[in-house]
Simulated scan of single mutants.
Amino acid sequence: MNQRTQRIAVLGAGVMGVAITTLAIANGLPVTLVDVDETKLATAPGRVRKQLRMAALMGSAPKGRVAAIEVTTSVYDLVGVTAVIEAVTELPELKAKVLADVTAVTAPGTPVVTNTSAIPVDELASAVARPADLAGAHFMNPPYLIRTVEVIRGPRTGDAALSKVLDLLAAMDRESIVVADGPGFVINRVLQRMINEAARIVQEGVASPADVDALFRGCLGHRTGPLATADLIGLDNVADSLRVLRDRTGDDGYEPCALLLDKVAAGDHGRKTGRGFYDHGEVHP
């Protein structure tokens, strides 16, 4: 992929959209970031700069020229983009609408990537103008620190689209592992159930969040435990993903537990709000 001729659209200026934008521009790929929320858009460049500094401190920032970032509220500004990455909230109806809108203005053959956490790619493909152009790429948070990406090939994903998505991820210096479609794919089919059970253990008074996570780190070698991971993902996103998995698998084990729902209702969504299972201090835009 020739970075000089690329312009990527990232849909959604939330946690993942900004982080994916950071990853792309750090690797020399210019980005047009789209969101209907003008407040989020106004703060997005500052959040990207902060993450670029963090990536540099962690030794994961490439030593090349950082590409430009533009922001817009209109998908009509995306005519001519060479790839699209969708990273809006994990709500099926919202994702379907955003993907339908963007594929109406992009050229045939433009790869469109959904960063869905749990919604089957083929379900979203029914909403787009060209299902063969759609694939999934489940980035881990933060994507500029975690190199491996779970790539999902839907039943209607074309060979050309998959090849372009893999080339795009390679240009971002990511390692791709391609899996088949299905609710939650691999990572979240396992991880979200684990988070839910860990939250239920805390709810029942069996152990504190710190002790749950310490056991996973000390006994199983995890870098972070399930509840610290949940705070990083965002507890609202965890609850949304669990509902998707429950509805599409029929497995009641994915029903979000009461403690998780109580925290979401209280606005304690994890790192992005300053409090979740842990207290993360004051949040700055």
Results as ranks from 00 to 15, higher is better:
Thr157Arg: 00
Val84Thr: 12
Leu124Lys: 13
Arg189Gly: 14
Leu29Asn: 06
Ser117Trp: 00
Asn115Met: 04
Ala207Pro: 08
Val149Glu: 01
Arg189Trp: 01
Leu52Tyr: 00
Val212Arg: 15
Lys263Tyr: 15
Asp122Thr: 11
Ala9Asn: 05
Ser74Gln: 03
Gly12Leu: 02
Ile187Cys: 08
Ala171Lys: 09
Ala170Arg: 14
Arg174Met: 13
Asp77Tyr: 00
Lys97Gly: 07
Ala132Phe: 13
Gly274Phe: 12
His284Ile: 14
Thr21Asn: 00
Ala171Trp: 01
Ala198Gly: 08
Arg47His: 08
Met194Ile: 07
Val206Gln: 13
Leu166Met: 09
Asp211Ala: 12
Pro108Met: 07
Leu169Arg: 06
Asp77Ile: 05
Glu197Arg: 09
Val151Cys: 11
Asp37Gly: 03
Ala9Pro: 05
Val31Asp: 01
Ala239Arg: 11
Arg47Asn: 12
Asp279Trp: 08
Ile8Arg: 06
Phe216Asn: 04
Thr39Gly: 10
Leu91Met: 13
Leu260Gln: 04
Val10Tyr: 03
Gly270Cys: 06
Arg130Glu: 10
Tyr76Asn: 15
Pro143His: 02
Asp252Leu: 11
Asp251Thr: 11
Val165Ser: 01
Val186Met: 03
Ala55Lys: 00
Thr32Gln: 08
Ala9Phe: 01
Thr103Leu: 02
Ala239Lys: 05
Ala266Asp: 03
Ala198Leu: 06
Ala24Cys: 07
Thr249Val: 07
Arg193Asp: 06
Asp122Ile: 14
Asn27Gln: 02
Arg65His: 14
Arg275Ser: 05
Leu29Ala: 05
Ala9Ile: 05
Thr110Lys: 02
Asn188Glu: 00
Tyr144Ile: 12
Ala161Cys: 12
Val128Ile: 05
Asp77His: 12
Ala61Tyr: 00
Glu86Asn: 11
Pro108Arg: 10
Ala180Cys: 06
Tyr144His: 09
Thr249Phe: 11
Gly276Phe: 04
Pro183Asn: 06
Leu235Thr: 01
Gly12His: 06
Arg7Tyr: 02
Leu227Glu: 10
Val71Gln: 04
Ala19Leu: 04
Gly46Asp: 11
Lys50Trp: 05
Asp37Ile: 12
Val179Asn: 09
Val34Glu: 02
Ala96Ser: 11
Ala161Thr: 05
Gly281Asp: 10
Ala83His: 12
Gly205Val: 07
Phe185Arg: 04
Pro285Phe: 15
Gly276Asp: 06
Pro256Ala: 15
Asp37Pro: 02
Leu124Ala: 04
His138Gln: 09
Val178Gln: 02
Gly218Thr: 12
